[in-house]
C-alpha cells in the first residue's frame, strides 16, 4: 500500500557499482516487480475511492451519479458498521492474547530437551497448513456439533451438559477455530527467537537460583519480546481479513453476531450489489489496516540492515 510510510517513488537508481566487478544496471531487474505491484495496489485503490463517492448499485442501473459523502454518512449511521468494527477488533484481540500467550509458554516448553521433540513440533505446527475452509468445517461439525460432535460427547460424559457452540457462543467459537489455526504461527516464530538465547544466560540465571518459572518470566519472555511484536503485527494484518472461517460456519450470524468488517463488505458488495456502500466500507477497512501497517513497517524496518 503506497499510502503508508514510504512516499518516495520506488524506482531504483542505476549506478555504477564497484563491489561486484563491473557496472550493473539493476533497473530492468527490479522494474517489472515494482511496476506490477504499483498497478496492483494503486489502480484498485483509486477505483475503491472513486466508487465510494458514487451512487452505484448493480441491480438497479437507475441509481447512479455522484453521491458525495452520502455513502459514508449512511454507513456511519448504520449500527451494523459499528458492530462489525467491534467484531473485527474483538476477534483480533482475543486471538492475539490466546496465540501469543500460549505461544510463549509452548515455545519455552519446546526449548527443553525431551524424547520425540521434533515429531511433537511437527504435530504442533500442523494446523497452520490446513486450509481455512477445512479447519472451519472440521471444527464446526466433527468437534463442535451439539449432538454428534466430539466435544459434546466429552462434556456430556463428564456431566457438564452440552454447549451449542455456534448458537450460544458464536464469536467465541470462531475465535477458537482461528486461534487453533494461528497458534502454530506464533509458536514457531517465538520458538525460533528463543533458540537464539545463549546457554550462558540461562545457566547464569540457574546458578543465581532462578527456577524454571522465574527463568521463563525474566529471561525468556523478555528475549522473545521482539519476535512477539512481529507476531502481533503480522497476525493483526491477517486476522483483520478473516473471511472463510465465518463464511462456512456462521455466515456472519446469528443475526450479525459474527459479522466482521470483511464479511460486512462482502455482504454489501456481492450479496446486496451495493457497490457504493461496499466501497465506502472498503475505504474504512483500508484506513484501519494502514494505521496498523504503519507500525508494522516501522518495527520491521528498524531491523533491516541494508
Amino acid at each position: 500500500m503506497s499510502t503508508t510510510a514510504v512516499t518516495r517513488l520506488p524506482t531504483p537508481r542505476t549506478r555504477r557499482s564497484r563491489t561486484s566487478g563491473g557496472a550493473v544496471n539493476t533497473l530492468p531487474l527490479v522494474a517489472p516487480s515494482v511496476v506490477l505491484l504499483l498497478i496492483f495496489s494503486l489502480v484498485p485503490l483509486a477505483a475503491t475511492l472513486w466508487f465510494s463517492v458514487l451512487r452505484y448499485n448493480l441491480l438497479n442501473p437507475a441509481i447512479h451519479g455522484f453521491a458525495g459523502f452520502a455513502n459514508y454518512r449512511f454507513l456511519f449511521a448504520d449500527p451494523a458498521l459499528l458492530h462489525s468494527l467491534f467484531v473485527s477488533v474483538a476477534l483480533v484481540v482475543e486471538v492475539l492474547v490466546i496465540t501469543v500467550g500460549l505461544g510463549c509458554i509452548l515455545a519455552s516448553l519446546f526449548e527443553t530437551r525431551f524424547p520425540g521433540r521434533s515429531i511433537a513440533r511437527v504435530l504442533m505446527i500442523s494446523p497452520f497448513f490446513v486450509m481455512p475452509t477445512v479447519s472451519a468445517l472440521i471444527w464446526k461439525n466433527l468437534l463442535m456439533h451439539p449432538v454428534n460432535g466430539f466435544i459434546a460427547w466429552v462434556t456430556r460424559s463428564l456431566g457438564l451438559g452440552v454447549v451449542d457452540f455456534f448458537t450460544d457462543w458464536p464469536l467465541t467459537s470462531v475465535v477458537i477455530i482461528v486461534a487453533w489455526q494461528w497458534l502454530p504461527f506464533a509458536f514457531l516464530i517465538l520458538l525460533t527467537a528463543l533458540q537464539s538465547l545463549d546457554e550462558e544466560t540461562r545457566e547464569a540465571a540457574n546458578i543465581d537460583g532462578a527456577g524454571p518459572i522465574r527463568t521463563f518470566l525474566f529471561i525468556e519472555v523478555p528475549h522473545m519480546g521482539r519476535a512477539a511484536s512481529v507476531v502481533v503485527l503480522m497476525e493483526t494484518i491477517f486476522l483483520l481479513g478473516i473471511f472463510a472461517e465465518i463464511y462456512v460456519t456462521t455466515s456472519g450470524g446469528p443475526g450479525i453476531a459474527t459479522t466482521n468488517l470483511t464479511f460486512l463488505i462482502y455482504e454489501r458488495a456481492l450479496l446486496a450489489y451495493n457497490v457504493g456502500g461496499a466501497s465506502a466500507a472498503g475505504v474504512i477497512a483500508i484506513i484501519l489496516a494502514n494505521v496498523l501497517a504503519a507500525f508494522l513497517v516501522r518495527a520491521i524496518g528498524k531491523r533491516l540492515d541494508i
Binding site: F40, P44, A47, T48, I265, V283, I286, I306
Partner: peptide
C-alpha cells in the same frame, strides 16, 4: 523499495474486492 513492497501487503483484500 523493499519497505514499500512490504507495505503493499497491508492493503486488505476486502478493500479492493469491489473494483
Amino acid at each position: 523499495t523493499l519497505l514499500w513492497m512490504l507495505s503493499t501487503k497491508m492493503l486488505p483484500p476486502v478493500g479492493v474486492l469491489v473494483p
